[in-house]
Simulated assay, not measured.
Amino acid sequence: MFVTLGCGFNQKPPERMDPKVIEKVVQEMADFTPDMGEIEGVPLLKGICDVWDTIHNFQARDGDIVVASYPKSGTTWMQEILDLIVLDGDVEKSLRAPGFVKVPFLEMGHTSLEVANTMSSPRILKTHLPVQLMPPSFWEKDVKKQSDWLLWATAPLFLCTVTWGNWFDHVIGWWKAKERHKILYVFYEDMIEDSPREIHKVMRFLGKDLPEDVVQKILHHTSFQSMKNNPMFNFSALSETVFDQSVSTFMRKGIVGDWKNHFHESQNLIFDKEYEEKMEGSGLAFRTEL
């Protein structure tokens, strides 16, 4: 499935977003509770389940770009790279709103979807939904999907048990979907190993050809340290009721192989066995270290 982005890249991006809209999105995030529900057998936060009809009926547009990833897999990094590519590297325009507002989160409730509906095309959207729960309109439209950009090596046993369902089902589901749809699979380890190479890969996927000095600007602005220190991306501007930075910073270490500092040898053996069984025959392989 090929995508025609038309004149979207030439449209003037919106000016800085209305502070009241930003405040409304933040409040909706604060209202989420850890209570759980279920949609089609997939465990999800109850707040997501409560607005499921709105999410399910969301209307995709031709030219939408979707970052589909498992939670805590580098989503914020990729969405900022995509935003700067769309904006031809204009950093000032990229600061029009915090990352969690300017790139609407499909399952984060009514306000986030309202923001998406007011945006000009091409829109950048993000989701942690497994492939089978994506709103049907995305399969009906000529939509580009930047899919499953994964950091699997950071506490993988934990990732298998958090909300948004099972990690194995999630990554294999999106991997198989690329056989039927226009999906680019990008790996966190590859990004850490050679960010310029992977950014050029994403640009080709989007049909963009930017000068090398612009690519270098994107690399600088989206470096881990730059984003970690930027309140537009690191969630430090949010209250503790929304995100408690004293427990863990939103952007943690930005490295590959930190699992070695958390897994005992016996735990690693258990995980390796589970990994081999669940991934057998998928054709999907992850690197756990560089």
Rank of each mutant, 00 (worst) to 15 (best):
D62S: 12
V115Y: 09
Q267H: 13
T33G: 05
P71D: 08
N268I: 13
V42G: 06
E40H: 15
T127V: 04
G37L: 02
E179I: 08
F224G: 08
T111D: 11
E193S: 12
E92V: 15
I172E: 09
Q59R: 07
D190N: 08
V42T: 10
G74I: 00
P211L: 04
G99A: 09
L159E: 06
H56K: 15
Q27M: 11
E15G: 15
Q132L: 11
G165V: 02
L106Y: 03
S248V: 14
W149H: 11
V21M: 09
G47W: 04
P98T: 00
G63R: 01
E15A: 11
M78S: 08
V103Q: 05
E38C: 10
K126H: 04
T161N: 13
H110R: 14
C160P: 04
E240F: 06
H128T: 01
R16N: 10
M279I: 02
G99M: 03
K182I: 11
R197F: 11
E276F: 09
N166G: 06
L206H: 01
P14G: 05
M17N: 04
P135M: 03
G254S: 01
N229T: 06
H220D: 07
I183K: 01
V202S: 02
L129Q: 02
V162H: 07
L45G: 10
D148P: 09
L45R: 07
K178C: 07
S246W: 02
G165N: 01
F138T: 03
M203K: 00
H110W: 15
H181Y: 14
I124D: 01
